[in-house]
């Protein structure tokens, strides 16, 4: 996994609530057996007509907006557990998603792929949308070490929360499997003690 320290970038606004993972990557694109290439179909049905022509009114097709940060309405990533949603966002080039609320599984999947979910207050989210609308070049800075997000243009700033273990993983580019494999002895000891409990109960 790539390290995440500080991200300074313009952002893409998606002021829609309850963006579910079926919108992020529709099921018919889940037939791949690798993790690559999902970015092409990110937001497929909002982004393209059935015949493949881009829909002009969708933000990813608007040349005014670009950047490594997606800013979206509340309850982002609800629905299916498909990690393909996180892969698609990452593959497209996003490194962080800012919203006032994230669905649990999406949050976990994002963190496992180096895509940082930044949960902010409804007010700050609104402030970010306003700032980007006023100036699509307005950049956001996300500082993971300090757990803060800033928008220089409007001077807005807010702290955000992240689990300390997950923060450590992101800052150092470590993944969970490395960690779990390193405690295999403990896992085996646990299995052993469970077995003993079971036998004792019989």
């Amino acid at each position: 996994m790539e390290k995440f320290t500080t991200l300074h970038s313009t952002a893409v606004p998606l002021p829609i609530e309850e963006v579910d993972t079926d919108q992020i990557i529709p099921a018919r694109f889940l037939k791949a057996t690798t993790r690559e290439g999902f970015g092409d179909n990110l937001f497929r049905d909002w982004r393209y007509e059935n015949d493949g022509r881009p829909k002009a009114d969708f933000v990813l097709n608007n040349p005014l907006y670009s950047g490594k940060i997606l800013v979206a309405g509340r309850n982002f990533g609800c629905g299916s557990s498909r990690e393909h949603a996180a892969w698609a966002l990452y593959d497209y080039g996003f490194r962080a998603v800012v919203s006032s609320f994230f669905a649990d599984i999406f949050r976990a999947n994002a963190l496992n792929n180096g895509l940082l979910p930044v949960q902010v207050s409804q007010e700050l989210l609104h402030g970010i949308f306003t700032a980007i609308e006023a100036d699509p070049q307005a950049a956001l800075t996300i500082d993971l070490e300090a757990q803060r997000i800033h928008i220089a243009a409007s001077g807005l700033s807010e702290g955000f929360e992240i689990d300390t273990y997950k923060k450590h993983c992101l800052l150092n580019g470590l993944d969970d499997i490395d960690f779990l494999l390193s405690i295999q002895d403990q896992i085996e000891a646990y299995e052993q003690s469970r077995r003993q409990q079971l036998t004792a109960a019989q």
Binding site: S81, E83, A86, I105, A108, N109, N112, L180
Partner: peptide, 8 residues
């Protein structure tokens, strides 16, 4: 769970 956790 997501696929990374399936792998875990």
């Amino acid at each position: 769970i997501g696929t990374s956790q399936v792998e875990q």
